[in-house]
Design a protein around this nucleic acid. Structure first.
Length: 493
RNA sequence: GGUCGGGUGGCCGAGCGGCUAGGCAGAGCUCUGCAAAAGCUUGUACACCGGUUCGAAUCCGGUCUCGACCUCCA
């Protein structure tokens, strides 16, 4: 298998990826909290991990990809559970809220052509495991009970292990200093850096379970520790998530795992960066936001028109997962055209044939670029660079296709390899779909065939006024007519 | 305030010591009844000031500036 290098957030450097078990990868990615519709930021994160997952599969790894669904315990500022807030807003049971938005999330993942994870556990389905983990943390002396809730003793843990803050770069002394001002706001906690691993529920709280400490519910960070351990073991290969989860969520997750079993959960931590809009983080809470629905329809002050999910996916591919991505209308337009160009080139490529059996002039360059695509992807999943290689090949393909370069300048072996690399990277690794194919227009097709046939007759008779009238009227109806070498095609837009 | 990451051509976005990606837009050309579409070719760049080096967008120091996180967020 090829050498794969991954930027590890934990060590802040690129490292050679060495799986714990040869040929196998265990990967855990923090999934969404299903209390409202997914937004494009979520899409960015999960699409980035989808590409990572797909490439690992492509390299030949057997991957167990676990991505959770948070349906309890993720609290708002005022202490209200996100799920309950959602339930009140929609007048639904909490589990109806979870189901509704899980469905929406799954639908959107499919629209963006993200593969399903191997296991998608829910927090509410793993209450027992979470209670057991709280107990293990207590047994190791890193938890304390206060008023029915259980808190993780961050300070004690930090002092005993020296492990707290490594991922996020927090300094424990600063946490201590901070405490003096903030302590009065923290009811039961001994220290503001402590965090709840089990919360006692108030009487009106609906989502609650029995536990040794109280009728309550698990803390938000706990579910990921418990579920990753359950499905991947207490030590696995990759843990991923959005950058904004690095602290406190992932830091606390590590603390919990260490606190429960003295085991660092993952060898490699991957963090995707944020989606920006107007240079600022896209965020539902402050309105700096474009929803997937708005993206598709174009019904947003930030967009001039609608864009397909594949355009967005291509847009995502053009930047590295570790960099912020600034969503702009102009950027999306560029992506839309770029995607089309790539797809057209691939279509042309797949229909090329050559009888050249010996090696030929173009072979070295083409094989070199094909190889580079792998090198780029193995360098911390550098999809923009890999994509650029594909685009470097496009002029060659088009020139072969339209006869500017004769077909005997490429050997059949190289041509087959090129075809395969294009197919595999565009569809299998990058997960792009051809929008054109899914755009079948039903009854319009027959109608357009008739109209274009009439126009062709006029053109054959050199009746330009009639031919142009048809074309102009169609443009008014947002149908563009394109006269090509092999007949006339049309498209909506 | 603390921690971290950025500032690259008109826009987006890679590269991170020499070989100066790529997409879009622009320009030229080809095709075409005209147009559109498509294709081919192609220019402009590394926030600022010092330093290290034979050589820096890339390393070091400083300045300005933007953003993320610091218990709501993917």
């Amino acid at each position: 298998m090829r050498d794969l290098y991954i930027y590890n957030s934990l060590t802040r450097q690129k490292e050679l990826f060495k799986p714990i078990n040869e040929g196998f990868v265990g990967m855990y990615v923090c999934g969404p909290t299903v209390y409202s519709d997914v937004h494009l930021g979520n899409v960015l994160t999960f699409t980035n991990f989808d590409i990572i997952y797909r490439f690992l599969l492509h390299l030949g790894y057997k991957v167990r990809y676990v991505r959770n669904i948070t349906d309890v315990g993720h609290l708002l500022d005022d202490g209200e559970d996100r799920m309950l807030r959602g339930a009140k807003a929609d007048n639904l049971e909490p589990m109806e809220v979870a189901q509704k938005y899980s469905n929406g999330f799954h639908h959107m993942m499919r629209v963006f052509n993200n593969l399903e994870p191997s296991i998608e556990p829910r927090a509410t389905g793993h209450i027992l495991e979470q209670i057991e983990m709280v107990q293990a943390i207590m047994d190791n002396g890193y938890g304390y009970v206060a008023n029915g809730s259980v808190y993780f003793d961050t300070i004690k843990f930090a002092k005993a292990t020296g492990e707290y803050g490594k991922l996020s770069g927090r300094v424990i002394e600063e946490l201590l200093v901070e405490s003096r001002d903030n302590l009065k706001n923290q009811d039961d906690k001994r220290h503001p850096a402590d965090f709840a691993i089990w919360m006692k529920a108030s009487p009106e709280h609906i989502m609650k379970w029995n536990s040794p400490w109280s009728v309550g519910f698990p803390g938000w960070h706990l579910e990921c520790s418990a579920m990753s351990t359950k499905y991947l073991g207490n030590h696995f290969d990759i843990h991923g998530g959005g950058n904004d989860l690095k602290f406190p969520h992932h830091e606390n997750e590590i603390a919990q795992n260490l606190g429960a079993c003295r085991c660092t959960p993952a060898n490699y931590w991957l963090h995707t960066n944020m989606l920006l809009l107007n240079g600022k983080k896209m965020s539902k809470s402050d309105g700096n936001n474009v929803s997937p629905a708005e993206l598709f329809t174009g019904d947003s002050p930030f967009l001039s028109k609608g864009y397909s999910a594949m355009t967005m996916r291509f847009f995502i591919l053009q930047s590295h997962y570790g960099s912020t991505l600034d969503l702009t209308d102009e950027g999306l337009q560029a992506a839309e055209k770029g995607l089309k160009r790539l797809m057209e080139a691939n279509k042309a490529l797949q229909s090329l044939e050559t009888k050249q059996l010996d090696s030929a002039e173009l072979d070295a360059e083409i094989n070199g670029l094909c190889e580079q695509i792998y090198v780029d992807m193995c360098d911390d999943f550098n999809s923009p660079k890999a994509l650029s290689r594909l685009f470097e090949l496009v002029p060659k393909i088009n020139s072969l296709s339209n006869g500017v370069i004769p077909m005997n300048q490429i050997s059949s072996a190289s041509l087959e390899k090129l075809k395969k690399v294009f197919r595999q990277f565009i569809f299998d690794v990058f997960g792009l779909l051809d929008d054109e194919n899914s755009n079948a227009s039903g009854p319009l097709d027959g109608l357009m065939e008739l109209i274009l046939d009439l126009r062709q007759q006029a053109r054959t008779n050199k009746d330009w006024p009639t031919a142009d009238k048809i074309r102009d009227k169609l443009v008014e109806s947002h149908i563009v007519v394109k006269d090509g070498k092999d007949g006339t095609s049309w498209s909506i837009g």
